[in-house]
Design a protein around this nucleic acid. Structure first.
Ligand SMILES: [Mn+2]
Ligand SMILES: [Mn+2]
Ligand SMILES: [Zn+2]
Ligand SMILES: [Zn+2]
Lengths: 138, 138
DNA sequence: GCTTGACTTAGACAAAGTCCATTGTAGGAT
DNA sequence: ATCCTACAATGGACTTTGTCTAAGTCAAGC
């Protein structure tokens, strides 16, 4: 996504082949890859790219707010390039498929003061779970 | 919690010292311990208990539905004995403190059909984030 | 084209969790 | 009370996920 690359250059990033490849891999809708998956796909395009660089680049992208870290399952973190439109996730309990969803309503308003324990609440993250069409029919 | 031990015995569990200790450790309100924390506290009561046994027992308790697995941070899973009253979590972004919360409203109803992608949606998990009173004042 | 500091690399290290062969024991049978 | 045995516990090897570092490389400004 040259959009992203443009923004990164604007932030003073050196444009290396490795960073370009990671940005390319993280492109599309409903993309939620683990670091290892990103690495595997990056290696397909640039065989000598190292695991450390993938982790570094992902970490930098997260710090810059260009990519989100998502932990829908309890295994590896997943990296989500859809950072500019707030959304939640719908996860298949069997196969792990993940879709971006946009529920209506304001869940922050649904947490009464008596349930806030004096916290300053700023954000809520929702994970819907169920079965995808494939897994439901099997 | 002899309640829990009673139920486990009813399910045909052998009552070993190790299982008793793990059940004891997982007792109280707003308890969300990692496996290692459970192990550390178990060792204090029964020095020879092994890590593998703690993991095994926690896994069995989760399978039986007596304990919930929670992943509020992106590190280790946490084990939650409050499995019999549905609830969500409020997490301090700085210190990691976790409270059980009970939002009003029905988040499942807030996911329109057009946002379900053909999934059979059965459950939703909400994680509120913010700062606890301590961390907010610091 | 140099230069230089930012970037990449391989591999060591660490944390969280799983697996397995062996040893131990809870609890029913005698 | 003792025996038996299927179930449970153990320690350690192994895997997965992620971090760190020292040494080498190269993007980009001059
Ligand atoms: Mn997403
Ligand atoms: Mn809880
Ligand atoms: Zn599925
Ligand atoms: Zn705090």
């Amino acid at each position: 996504m040259s959009d992203l690359l443009e923004r990164l250059r604007g932030r003073g990033w050196r444009m290396t082949a490795q960073r370009r490849v990671v940005a390319e891999v993280l492109n599309g809708e409903h993309v939620h890859l683990t670091a290892d998956e990103v690495h595997a796909r990056a290696v397909a395009k640039l065989p000598e790219i190292s695991r450390a660089t993938v982790y570094n680049t992902l970490g930098e992208l997260v710090t810059l707010g260009e990519v989100l870290e998502v932990s829908t399952d309890k295994r590896a973190k997943r990296y989500d390039p859809n950072a500019h439109r707030p959304h939640h996730h719908l996860v298949c309990a069997r196969c792990g498929a993940i879709r971006d969803v946009h529920p209506t309503g304001n869940p922050l308003a649904d947490l009464p003061d008596s349930e806030r324990f004096g916290f300053t609440v700023s954000d809520v993250e929702m994970t819907y779970r169920g079965l995808c069409p494939n897994c439901a029919s099997a």
